[in-house]
């Protein structure tokens, strides 16, 4: 089966993100004050797997081994059948 996966990776809560802080300030300069701003990375992938569970565990493994750094990141995986 073909699966469509979307992975969202962000810093664990409470961790300092200087890039997000800088962007938040720049938005303020434009007249858009915000209470908080987080920046995340999103990976969109298509993969072949025997089942949805298998696809889920493959993508989970990808996150643990490369896409995310478990020391600093949380990640979220969404999987849908495709094709």
């Amino acid at each position: 089966m073909q699966y469509h996966a979307e992975v969202t990776i962000g810093l664990k809560s409470g961790m300092l993100d200087p890039e997000a802080t800088t962007i938040k300030k720049a938005l303020e300069h434009l007249g858009f004050p915000t209470d908080s701003l987080e920046m995340q990375k999103r990976f969109v992938l298509e993969l072949d797997a025997p089942s949805r569970d298998a696809a889920q565990s493959q993508v989970d493994e990808m996150c643990r081994r490369l896409l995310a750094n478990p020391v600093i990141h949380n990640f979220d995986i969404e999987i849908e059948e495709s094709g």
């Binding site: 961790m15 300092l16 993100d17 200087p18 890039e19 750094n69 020391v71 600093i72």
Partner: peptide
């Protein structure tokens, strides 16, 4: 080695 190296506090 343990830990991670993140963007400098003043980026």
């Amino acid at each position: 080695l343990p830990g991670a190296l993140m963007t400098n506090r003043y980026p």
